[in-house]
Computed example of a mutant assay.
Amino acid sequence: MATFDSLRIVKDLQAAGFAQNQAEAVATAIRTGHGDVAKKSEFSGLRSEFSGLRAEFVGMRSELAGVRSELVAVKWAVGLLAALNMSTLAAVVGQLLSA
């Protein structure tokens, strides 16, 4: 990680026309935020987390495909049962009306 030279920044800002108090305030703000910069090791940790999430997503996509197949089979079975029930009902009604 690069070191932070606040004195150098203050001098550079003063040379650019900043007043000393303004230059010091800017250097302080930069130094405060400097610790919030993400490190390379943190990115590699995120990369492995994303790889794990990607693998989970692929697994869930595969499971979803299986569920879709089962749903299609259930839809056909329900349709077939409804058709059989209607034909049975029609036969019973036909028997009752002819009796």
Rank of each mutant, 00 (worst) to 15 (best):
L53G: 01
A55G: 13
V72C: 05
L97P: 05
M86S: 13
V10F: 01
V92H: 04
A82K: 15
W76H: 14
G33P: 01
V92F: 03
R8A: 10
S48M: 11
L81D: 13
L89C: 09
E42A: 10
G94W: 03
L89W: 10
A23V: 02
Q22W: 10
A15V: 02
V67C: 01
S48W: 10
G66I: 00
G59R: 05
D5Q: 11
A27P: 04
L7G: 15
V26C: 06
G35W: 08
A25W: 03
V26I: 15
E70Q: 06
V58M: 01
F50L: 09
E56Y: 07
R8P: 00
M1Y: 01
S44Y: 04
E24V: 02
E24P: 02
L80Y: 11
L80V: 14
F43S: 03
L97C: 01
E24F: 04
A27W: 04
V26N: 00
A73Y: 07
S44V: 09
N85H: 06
Q95I: 15
G52F: 06
L84S: 09
L84V: 15
L84E: 06
L53N: 02
A2Q: 14
F18E: 12
K75W: 05
S51D: 03
A27C: 02
A19G: 04
E70G: 07
N21D: 09
Q95T: 04
V26Q: 04
G35C: 04
D36H: 12
A2H: 15
S87I: 08
K40V: 14
A19P: 06
V26T: 11
L97E: 03
A77C: 12
R68G: 13
G59F: 07
V37G: 05
S48K: 01
T3D: 12
A82H: 09
M1V: 08
T3L: 07
G59P: 10
M60G: 02
K11P: 00
G79P: 06
A77I: 07
S41G: 02
L7P: 04
S51V: 01
V93T: 08
S62N: 13
K75A: 08
N85S: 15
L97Q: 12
L81T: 12
A38V: 07
L13F: 00
K39R: 12
L64T: 06
A25V: 05
F4Q: 01
A65E: 09
G17W: 00
M1W: 10
Q22G: 07
K75P: 01
L53M: 07
I30W: 10
